[in-house]
């Protein structure tokens, strides 16, 4: 359990007036990051609103490893200052996330990492990143046979042979 530390309201020289946040990962790594980089995360934004209401700033504990957290911070740094429609809490949600080339390269990681990133993005409420991850996962499954999908997703076939061939196990009506 990390100790809760107060972060003073210092500013970073040359980087405008952005305040700093202390994020603590599940493997107890302390990561200092500028507040406006993380403002894309609804979860972090709500925390910051809480700080302002109580005038009390403290570290934010996150339930995933620093490895994953750094990846998410890399994503947020890349899009610092960019407007992404999916992350606008006031905008109507778009049907599907647009394809962003940088994201595709950024998410060219192994399956487990991808699942960890999407979980972290969901926790942090970064909709654009969840959308891009969902698309990347769908791309892995797309065009595969049932057997290949089981391999990719690491699932066991738990249907009985009869069920597998009976129309009742199907869900179209």
């Amino acid at each position: 359990m990390p100790t809760i530390v107060s972060v003073d309201d210092s500013t970073v020289p040359g980087e405008g007036s952005s305040r700093l946040l202390l994020l603590v990962s599940s493997d107890n790594k302390h990561i200092v990051v500028e507040e406006d980089i993380m403002s894309r995360s609804r979860f972090i934004s709500k925390q910051v609103e809480g700080f302002e209401a109580t005038s009390q700033r403290h570290a934010i504990l996150l339930p995933f490893s620093s490895f994953v957290l750094n990846k998410v911070i890399e994503y947020c740094s890349h899009y610092r200052g960019y407007y992404l429609l999916e992350d606008d809490p006031d905008a109507a949600p778009p049907g599907r996330s647009p394809v962003r080339e940088w994201d595709q390269e950024f998410l060219d990681v192994d399956r487990n990492m991808l699942l960890r990133i999407i979980k972290a993005a969901h926790y942090l409420e970064i909709k654009s990143l969840v959308g891009s991850c969902a698309r990347a996962i769908a791309d892995m499954i797309r065009g595969k046979t049932t057997e290949e999908m089981r391999e990719i997703l690491g699932v066991e076939n738990d249907f009985t042979p009869e069920e597998e061939h009976s129309p009742s196990s199907k869900c179209t009506g």
Partner: peptide, 16 residues
Amino acid sequence: EDLNLGDLLNLRLTCR
């Protein structure tokens, strides 16, 4: 929701 019909039909046969 990003998958097409064929993928969904295959996917629903992977597990319960």
